[in-house]
Structure formats: C-alpha cells, structure tokens
Design a protein around this nucleic acid. Structure first.
Length: 574
RNA sequence: GCGCCCGUAGCUCAGUGGAUAGAGCGUUAGGUUGCGGACCUAAAGGUCGUGGGUUCGAGUCCCGCCGGGCGCACCA
C-alpha cells in the first residue's frame, strides 16, 4: 500500500499533475516515509495516509490538491500486489480525499478473497515476509542473557531472555538471518570466587564474605567428579602460583561449566535456544582482543597514562576516556568488549544487537565508540536496554537478593506460571518500560490472562473445523463470494486475518512485539464476534458452510502464526 | 551534581506527528435453544505528571520543572 501510494506520487509528478520538488533527496525521503494506517473508523476506508499533508510544503500545493492528484493515479493503478503475496492481486477499489487532506483508500472486495486464498495455499509461509530473491538477507547477531555462569538464572534474567528471543523471531519472520548468541565469562575473578566457595564447602569451611553462598554451591561441592578431583589435588600438590592452573582454577572452571549447562537447559525450557555460546576467555586465547587493540593503536585511538592503557572515548563524545588494560596488566571488561566487536563483525554480521539490562546503559557509549574507532558504523551496533521488572505477589514486592539467598530462580518462576503466560506478558510490553509482574495474575488460567483468551479462540476455531469434518463437510476450494458484503461478519473477520504481514513488518521495523499480541487479541475478538453472528456448520446451507469453513481455517492459520511468532503454543484443545 | 529510561482509566499496560486516546482486569447492567460460557453486548471511568515551545495538527518532537527507576570505577 505504501509502495502503491509512493508510485502514485511519482507518476503524478512525472505526468505534470504535481510540480516536481527542487529537492529530489527530500522527495525520496518523503516517499520512503509515507505513513499508511488502518483508520480507527471504517468510515475512513481500509487504509488512510497523511502523505498529502506531509508533502504540502515540499510540493508547494494545498494538501487537498495533492491528495486529488494521487487519487487520480491510484485509480489507474492495476495489478497492485500487497502483503508480499505472489498471486496476481486485484486493484484498489476506490480512493478519496477527506478532511484536511487525508487520503482514504478502499480495497476491492475481491482483493480480500484473493489474499485469503493465497494465504491458505501456503499456510506455513503466512506471517513470513517475502523478499526479492536478489536481495541478500540482512545478517543480524542478537546477543542476550549473557549472565555469567556463577549461579542459576534468576527471574531477573527472564525479561532479557524473552525480549532477545522475541526480537530474534520477529527479525527472522521479516526475512533476516539471525544468530542468537550468549556471551559468558569463564575466567577471572568471578570464576575464581566460585571455585573458592566450592572448595570451602567441600572442605567443610565457611564461605568467604564475598563468595557465593546459595544452595547450588553446596550441591556443586558434593558433585565434583573423580577426574576433576584428581586434577585439583595434582594442581594443589604442584604448588603452582599460576592463577590459570591452580586448584581454584580447576574447580572454578568445572563448576562454571556445569552451571552453564544448567543455564542452557533452563533457557531451552523457555523455548530459547542459542546458536553460539561465546566465552570471554576465547577472545583472548584466539587473539581477538590483541588484534582489536593493535587496530586501535594503529589508528591512534589509544594512550598510555598512569601505567594503564586508555581508549580515547572522549574523541567520540564520551564523558571520559576508558581503561582497556589496568596498570596491573589485567584487561578490563571493556577490553573484552572491544575484542568481541571485532570478532562479531569479522564473522560477517551486518548488524549487532545487544540486549542489555538497564543497569548497563553506562557502557553503551564506550562500546559503540570503540566499534566506530575500529571502523564500523555506529548504527550497526544497537544496544537494546531492557528495563527493570518488579516481581509482585499479592501486591507485595518479592525481595530478590542473591547474597541473602532469597532469589527466585527462573525455573521456579516458570514452573509456577508457564512459558506461554510469561512469553505473552513480556511480548505485550515495551522493553524500555519498567513493569510490575504480578505472579498471581499471570498464574490465573482464566480471562484475567489474555494469553488464554487468544489460545481459547484458536481452540474453538479448531473445534469448529473438527465438527465440520465430523459432519462430512469440506472447506471450499476458494473463498468465492463470501466476502462480497463488506458489512457481513465474514468480511469483518477476513479484514483482520489478512493484516498479519503488516503487523510483522511493523514489529520488525520497530524491534517491538506488542503489536503481535495486540493483533492476536484483535483476531480472537473478531472471531468471537463472527462466532456469535454467523453459523459455520449448517447442514441446510452446504455452500455457505464450506466457504465459512475455509474462512475459519484461514483465521486459525493466522492466529497460530501470530502465536508461533511469539513462541506461544496454539492448542487445538484446551 | 551529570547521564540514560519512565510517568496515559481504580489496577496492569498498548498507542507509527493525524480524524472520537485504546485493551485486559476490576465495577455496574444485560445476553446463550447455534457449532467450546476460558464466551458475548453495553455503561461508568482520562486536565495523557506539570508549564512553555515547534507544527495546519502534539500522549507522541524540543526545553524547563515535579515524581519514580537505573547508572556515573584502573569493579566484575
């Protein structure tokens, strides 16, 4: 639709109906940015655009005049294909000018039927945007969770896990090639502290003040396999002072890998699976950090000061310069981050997304600055900051202290509320908003919880299809004339069904999934209204029944596709 | 003090500079002989924190203020 209007604008200018602008670049930007929306009231047509008002200044004509010229061109438009469909789709039925210059467009009734038929012909592709085959898909790296494996994931990690996975799914649906990546620290202070804590408990000693004290540490202490214990005692006997080889290192490394496997299992239970697990240590052993530093040094972005190595981040607008290598000779996390940027782009990604907790916002500027200094464009390094979640039960905030041992693990939470509920909850809220998660409301298996509303509608659609089958009815081969009456319940439902591709496009463009949950709810609501007003399985009206069975099948396909996009199950029965 | 995020209905939250600001829950009043009542219809409920500005048009963009969250290390 956007394209159709854009072409109409260009043709109107080419034909002299509208004056050409002096600024061709501005015209391109205008056409690129044409906004098309589904009006709140159907009196305003199926689609509306404000392009005439937007372009008024640039084209030096009154909005109404511009809109009229576009309408004339649209009337001539034929063979328009929208929604990325392959079929030969019909033209726009009518377009008119309203109010201060809104362009209101109505689709030919047959178009809706064509769209539905095309969709049913390829149900598995529904909700996935098609692309020009010549166009190479964007390669995107989405790094998320990335919690260090020194303890099980807690509910605090839940939002990042879902947000990252949901974003990945939406980008994939939009035709991008996504790599899901988990970055973790398998060496250094935290892992040593973990090793020390496990050793202390193994030996019946007290855990140090800054050590890890959760129950899982005690379990680790009793689960050290013989092979690891042998290596540990050998390391101790050798009396080595090498922090990479001593007993603490051996035990710490084993414990953290074991925890990491537990994390992997927890995430898999949420339907979150990673393509790449990248350890921080490997960035050093494989030389990425050194190479990145040499690259920065050669470009003049480094400076020795007070015995430490600094990156001149202020040259890129940061508040202060940042240390890469401390005067002790040890690298900072920032050093790893720099090596990692180099490593990721080296793998050929076009775009990097980091899903970080809101507490990381202080590091956004420095990492992007370093990326720019390494020669990569800032706009290809995107940090998605995920806001805090307060977990609330009966109106009381649950305390979440690792030190006090009162934290709730992700496994516990999901055991209580279910993956579908949790996914819906996070998908329906924007990542940047701090939210309250009411565990009681999320647990309720009733109308308080919108995810069940959508799933219920799907189960009922499937139930109708089963009933039709049981009565020997078959869905018709095409939707036929079922949708000719625009005011009938059938056409109303169909208009909602076909909107999914636009919803996916918007979600991918904005990196937000709320639109998908809204769509699922709207489709479920539209189906409820249809269900109330139209009888599907009716032995006395065979043709109508078979057409409606086809319509219901299309509704089920679209609702299931929307839910699948969110990683939520679409049950046939509940 | 500086920076980032946020403030929308009683509650939890949507809202792409556009037409009458929406949804779910909660409240109130109704509905089902027909395929799943985990349902449907309707009503009440809003100075979009606040004061300016930009714009033909601002919940949306800009500035100030108020309130909340999170950061401001040669920590990890």
């Amino acid at each position: 639709m956007r394209d159709a209007i854009g072409r109409a604008v260009r043709r109107a200018i080419a034909s002299g109906a509208l004056p050409g602008p002096e600024d061709a670049v501005a015209l391109d930007a205008l056409i690129q940015g044409i906004e098309v929306e589904v009006p709140a009231s159907s009196d305003h047509g199926d689609y509306a655009s404000n392009v005439a008002m937007k372009s008024s200044k640039l084209l030096k004509r009154a909005p109404a005049q511009i809109a009229a010229a576009i309408v004339a061109e649209l009337a001539a438009e034929t063979g328009e294909r929208i929604h990325g469909g392959d079929g030969a789709l019909g033209p726009i039925a009518s377009a008119d000018v309203a109010g201060p210059g809104f362009l209101n467009v109505r689709l030919r009734a047959g178009l809706l039927a064509d769209l539905l038929d095309a969709m049913i012909a390829a149900p598995s592709a529904w909700g996935h945007l098609t692309h020009d085959a010549k166009e190479k898909p964007l390669r995107v790296n989405v790094e998320f969770v990335s919690a260090n494996p020194t303890g099980p994931l807690t509910v605090g990690n839940a939002r990042g896990a879902f947000v990252g996975d949901l974003l990945s799914r939406v980008l994939e649906a939009a035709g991008q090639e996504v790599t899901r990546e988990y970055y973790f620290n398998d060496f250094g202070e935290q892992v040593r502290r973990l090793g020390e804590s496990v050793i202390a408990l193994r030996d019946g000693a007290a855990v140090a003040e800054d050590g890890y004290k959760g129950d899982y540490v005690a379990e680790l202490a009793t689960a050290i396999p013989p092979e690891v214990a042998t290596r540990a005692s050998a390391a101790r006997a050798s009396g080595t002072t090498n922090a990479d080889e001593d007993e603490v290192a051996v035990i710490g490394k084993w414990a953290s890998e074991r925890i990491r496997l537990g994390i992997e299992a927890s995430l898999a239970a949420l339907g979150v699976e990673f393509d790449v697990w990248r350890s921080e240590g490997s960035l050093y052993t494989e030389g990425f950090v050194d190479r990145a530093i040499e690259k920065l040094r050669a470009a003049g972005w480094l400076e020795e000061r007070d015995g430490a190595l600094w990156f001149k981040s202020t040259a890129f607008g940061d508040d202060k310069d940042r240390v890469i290598k401390k005067s002790t000779g040890a690298y900072t996390y920032f050093g790893s981050d720099i090596g990692y940027v180099e490593e990721k782009f080296g793998r050929g990604f076009d775009h990097l997304v980091y899903v970080w907790g809101a507490d990381h916002h202080g590091t956004v500027a420095r990492v992007r600055n370093a990326g720019e200094a390494l020669g990569y464009a800032k706009e290809h390094m995107e940090m998605l900051l995920v806001a805090w979640v307060r977990f609330v039960r009966d109106g009381v905030e649950m305390s979440m202290s690792k030190r006090a041992g009162t934290f709730v693990t992700l496994d516990e939470l999901l055991g209580e509320i279910g993956v579908d509920s949790a996914r819906w909850f996070f998908a329906s809220r924007s990542a940047s908003t701090a939210i309250d998660f009411d565990i009681k409301a999320a647990t309720a298996r009733n109308s308080e919880n919108p995810v069940y509303y959508a799933q219920y509608a799907h189960a009922r659609m499937k139930s109708i299809l089963r009933k039709g089958e049981a009565e020997g009815m078959k869905a018709s081969e095409s939707i036929g004339d079922l949708l000719n009456d625009e005011a009938a319940p059938d056409a109303k439902l169909a208009r909602v069904i076909v909107r999914l591709p636009e919803v996916v496009e918007d979600a991918a463009a904005h990196h937000e999934t709320q639109g998908v949950t809204t769509y699922a709810t709207e489709l479920a609501t539209a189906f409820s209204a249809f269900y109330r007003d139209a009888k599907v399985v009716d032995a006395s009206a065979a043709k109508l029944s078979s057409q409606r069975l086809r319509l219901v099948a299309a509704a089920a396909t679209s609702l299931a596709a929307a839910l699948r996009l969110l990683g939520i199950s679409a049950p046939a029965e509940m």
